[in-house]
Write a protein that binds this DNA or RNA. Structure first.
Lengths: 343, 343
DNA sequence: TTTGACTCCGAAAGCGTTTTCGTCAAAGAT
DNA sequence: ATCTTTGACGAAAACGCTTTCGGAGTCAAA
């Protein structure tokens, strides 16, 4: 049971508790031989330190908080589990904990931050669902709460973040359509409150420009990040005189809405019009035809987020030194094909 | 900042720390007047107790662990977020924390349990994805770790659990098909290692019997809990001479696989053959035709799970007193219709 | 007046670590 | 041979709270 403590180890080795403690924490003023002895006794006795005592004494909570992105009563992020799995595995390695926090609204989230900054229960925070102009960056910085954001914002240059290279992803996607022979490539983007919406549009535009294709403003449709949003946006695209032959969608969900719209117009997704989503949702493979998309290594992302935050908390790095861009990869499943008639 | 401590309150009120502490913890030997005073000063100073000190002194970690159901590298539970949101909201009310744990395999999970039982870092555990014969019930009981299971098992009578009334759900679903005029109702069930597989079969059977419909053993197909599993199972059903007019599927995922199979056979889901899934996945609404299913109030479930575990930890109740069955509701979306030709 | 019960509070000993500081012997420098 | 450095460890305070115990005060009953 929890019988083993520092004291028991000290007694067994005829050492003082402080020596044992420092041996475990790898202090330089402890000889290698005693360190070895201590470590052996630790496994022998199955010693588990009392984390609360340690956290009290050291002042380091050794605990990261993940703010679950709960907004307007909606939450069904299929990545959540994988993301947290990544974080958790990274943290358990070093004996830290991951606790989850829920913010039901923006105000609620700010209030949460303030409480945390007072209680010092958490070493740092991981936030997600960043907006184009996300006030949380400033608030957390002012409150001196170490944090790393999953996603960027307009004012994140002095903060720590990890994001997908959205621009690159949609550049790649669009280029991929071009290489398949498409020239009339539309883009259904998300609301511009989200930073990634802008970035993804940018990638789409750049690829078109680089391919010598003029940008048709009618080919850019804004959509809510939902099934219905995608459907409505595609409805609009299908009203155009000159239809696109490929559509790059801001998310898989939106793409599935777009597919629904196409079916309503008696069009087969991937035939008359190709399309791709983004997110790599597994369920995209379950529909007919299976949706092509772009994936990112979510679990690695979670691991990286946690590791970055730990470095931040340890004070080894400044926030601005901890910024990371990961890359998304094309996953061809069925809805990206060559145009039926090369124009 | 974290300047305020028990001491500061005590000093301000000319009381001893111990009195303040007991006032906050609502001891009976503190007068109402001082309790009031203390509570006022608490809000005035914005006092936040140091949870680590409290947990160290009291011996109660005030912290629940949720074991993320990670198996064979697969994890995409869309409920996870909502479930944890429910738990977290219930816990924050009483100042407890929710930390997540990941078990990469069964062995890994058991090892985790053992460590926890030694370190006493957590007050209790919430486990999920219970099997028909789930060893974890015995292991956790033996280790004296308080826990509540999300889902039942064959040997859970002395433990605390919360589960959907699976039998009832599939009874209702099947009855619903009957009321639509169906008589030839098949069931695609899950692997029998899962407890709910058995229960759902049971519900299907009972409804048929109660409706005076003889059970056709060919109408029961086992499937892996995956898209492909559903597809394969439906392939088999479609090979029968006498086709079913309705199919009750163990999960939405399986149902979507079944739909794929139907399309491959030039059948329209919901026309020649009706079908329903289970889980209430939102994405079921995004496909064509939208999948009818059964839903449960996931967030409430999470809240209940947490509350049950807190009661268990507090020792107010015995595990066997904390068992709860919740009900799932039919959600008609499009694939449940009357048979084309009433037989 | 004494006794007892009851109310309210303070003193103090923990809880199990970390961390600073001091000590002491042995090794090195002068 | 003396002085200083270095290496390795122990003593003890601190972290901020909980909880037991005892004691002072009040009031009513004996």
């Amino acid at each position: 049971m929890s019988n083993s403590s520092l004291k028991s180890i000290a007694k067994k080795l005829s050492l003082s508790e402080s020596t044992v403690s420092r041996a475990l924490n790898d202090y330089k003023d402890i000889s290698q031989s005693t360190k070895k002895l201590v470590n052996e006794t630790v496994v022998e006795l199955g010693y588990q330190p009392n984390i609360f005592a340690r956290r009290l004494a050291s002042g380091n909570p050794e605990c990261l908080g993940f703010v679950i992105p709960w907004r307007d009563g909606q939450l069904n992020d299929p990545f959540l589990g994988e993301l947290m799995t990544g974080m958790s595995t990274a943290l358990t390695k070093i004996g830290w904990d991951l606790t989850v926090l829920v913010a039901k609204s923006f105000e609620n989230e700010v209030e949460l931050f303030k409480k945390l900054s007072m209680s010092k229960n958490l070493s740092g925070l991981i936030i997600s669902r960043t907006l184009r102009n996300d006030e949380r960056f400033k608030i957390l910085t002012d409150l001196k709460i170490p944090f790393v954001a999953h996603g960027r914002s307009i004012n994140c240059s002095n903060s720590s973040w990890l994001d997908v290279d959205n621009e690159r992803a949609f550049f790649d996607m669009t280029k991929h359509f071009v290489s398949l022979g498409h020239r009339k490539i539309a883009h259904i983007c998300g609301p511009n409150v989200y930073n990634f919406s802008i970035q993804r549009i940018e990638g789409w535009k750049k690829a078109l420009l680089e391919s010598g294709i003029q940008i048709n403003s009618e080919f850019l449709q804004v959509a809510d990040l939902s099934f219905d949003g995608g459907k409505i946006a595609m409805d609009k695209l299908l009203k155009l005189k000159d239809l696109p032959t490929a559509v790059s969608c801001v998310s898989d969900t939106v793409a599935m809405g777009a597919m629904q719209s196409m079916r309503n117009h008696n069009l087969s997704p991937g035939k008359e019009i190709s399309l791709m989503g983004y997110d790599g949702l597994e369920l995209g493979a379950w529909i007919d035809p299976p949706l092509s998309t772009m994936t990112q290594p979510i679990q690695t992302v979670g691991k990286n987020l946690a590791e970055m935050l730990v470095n931040l908390v340890d004070g080894k790095k400044k926030p601005s030194d901890l910024q990371k861009l990961v890359r998304a990869n094309i996953l061809r499943r069925g809805t990206d094909n060559s145009p039926m008639t090369i124009s």
